[in-house]
Amino acid sequence: MSHEDTIPLHHSSQSDIDEIENLFIAGPHSATVLPARPPSPTRVSIPVSHSSPPLPPYQKVTPSSSPPPVVPAVPAAPSGSSRVGVAADAFGSSPDTLTEPVWDTVKRDLTRIVSNLKLVVFPNPFREDPGRALRDWDLWGPFFFIIFLGLTLSWSASVKKSEVFAVAFAILAAGAVILTLNVLLLGGHIIFFQSLSLLGYCLFPLDVGALICMLIGNAIVRIVVVSITLAWSSWAAYPFMSAAVNPRRKALALYPVFLMYISVGFFIIAID
């Protein structure tokens, strides 16, 4: 790249030296080399639960060091928000997971499911770009939600319980795959398993609705509850599905999603 191509950092650019000096001033605060931490084999850290705020683009953690150095918090970062698991697990090798207790493994997966659930179906600042938010996707959450919805439906069914479970499971599992393929076929940019994960997490409101409907027998209450949870699920899936495709094809990508959610919602109401 020649010198003419470079863009001056400030419009009042004096010289190259000043420019580099300005870079230092505006540069990252983690200038000093961090002291190497002694490895602590007994205490296993859970990578997801580090609530490190998203870093500026030129301040990433280097992927080589193991154990990863503790990232110093950027001073201006707001604390207390639900920014869990965004930039934490993407870099750095995780500590030894072979020798940890099983409970730690289970707990880490559960923590990840909860944090992903927060990122997808609850309001948070990452909703504008959910593909970025759910970088640390998993398929455990969708699996549990699909199984739970199928079980709830088959419990509340009066006849043909096993067939109800089979149909619900097939619709939900195959539906997620088909909806993702639909977006890909429409020329959208989407990561296959990430999309499966997101669609599965979007079922959580319908899970809640199905649970409430199983306990309450009144038909009007059921319709109201399912309508609310249906709107919630659609709201959760909307930004991600519509951002993946060209704006002129937004309706084509969204319609099948709504069709699946409406059919599941009808299922919940109709099965008594």
Binding site: L23, Y58, K60
Partner: peptide, 30 residues
């Protein structure tokens, strides 16, 4: 993450060419 590793804070180093556009766009909004 790969083009913007924190190399520019080391003494005497200049920012990598690859990261130039990114840094200038974040710092100066040019």
């Amino acid at each position: 993450g790969y083009t913007s590793l924190p190399t520019s804070h080391l003494l005497g180093s200049v920012p990598a060419v690859v990261a130039e556009g990114k840094i200038s766009s974040t710092v100066g909004q040019a």
